[in-house]
């Protein structure tokens, strides 16, 4: 009796967890199915298979323009965040100084400042600074939101870094640049790559801050999708959204292969 009960609890536990995984992944799965559906994209189960919505998406100038804007923006914001965030993470991890905790809380704080507050704050500040509705506005805003991801990932990466390895290389009379190139960088590479991917997908998918900074001007891809969703549905939207899903999943797969996702999330 006890064993039956035990198995029953186990089985219900497995069913419960399976249901939660499905709950998490369902929207993405449904979007992918809808993008391949030839007739009515809401029809389920799909009535056939087509790629025509993808050709329509590639032919759509608004979508392609915003895709290129989002890609450029995410690449530049990621690069800038890495350049200023990596040294900050190094300082936080390697130095013991007064205000270290405060510094760490400060550079991670964009994660807990509500995006809507950050958005309106930046909007009125950048209007005052004469930078509103420009690429620069989006660029600056996206550095703010990607920076905490870079600092968090790189702090973890530096904390796992065994400095004895560098010491050993120097004891073997390797010149400093060689130490950096052959020892430091290879060890930090998985961390740098994960930080870049998290920063990239954060910027690439962001709408909550972007919507305040790009109003009226050129739209990023998420803003374009938002506008289409707001004004009625179009199967092309499912194809474009699937592209976003594929880019995100592919980047996560890269992190999984190179660094192991479970070590960096």
């Amino acid at each position: 009796m006890d064993r039956i009960l035990h198995h029953a609890t186990n089985a219900s536990g497995i069913a419960l967890r399976a249901a939660i995984y499905l709950f998490l992944a369902l929207p993405a799965i449904v979007v992918i199915c809808a993008s391949l559906n030839p007739v009515d994209f809401l029809a389920f189960p799909p009535q056939g298979f087509t790629l025509k919505w993808y050709w329509a998406a590639f032919a759509s100038k608004p979508f392609m323009d915003s895709l290129s804007l989002s890609t450029q923006l995410a690449l530049l914001a990621t690069a800038a965040s890495l350049i200023i965030g990596t040294p900050a993470a190094y300082a936080i991890e390697r130095f013991r100084f007064r205000g270290r905790g405060a510094l760490q809380a400060f550079v991670l704080s964009p994660m807990i400042v509500p995006a809507v507050v950050l958005g309106i704050g930046l909007l009125q500040f950048l209007v005052w600074a004469g930078l509103s509705q420009s690429f620069a506005a989006l660029f600056l805003g996206h550095i703010v939101i990607t920076l905490p991801y870079v600092v968090r990932t790189m702090t973890a990466s530096f904390s796992l870094f065994d400095r004895a390895l560098e010491q050993a290389a120097m004891n073997l009379r390797a010149p400093p640049l060689t130490v950096v190139r052959r020892v430091t960088l290879p060890i930090l590479l998985p961390g740098l790559l994960s930080a870049s991917v998290f920063a990239f997908v954060t910027s690439f998918g962001n709408i909550t801050v972007s919507i305040f900074l790009a109003h009226g001007g050129r739209a990023t891809l998420p803003i374009q999708i938002f506008t289409y969703v707001d004004y009625g549905s179009d199967p092309t939207l499912a194809a474009v959204s699937t592209l976003v899903i594929l880019v995100t999943v592919a980047l996560l797969a890269v992190v999984e292969r190179v660094a192991g996702l479970q070590k960096v999330v």
Partner: peptide, 15 residues
């Protein structure tokens, strides 16, 4: 687990 977190919010809501 982390897909909804990394995927663009609008795509998720569209789903």
């Amino acid at each position: 687990v982390i897909l909804p977190l990394t995927l663009s919010l609008v795509v998720n809501v569209f789903g």
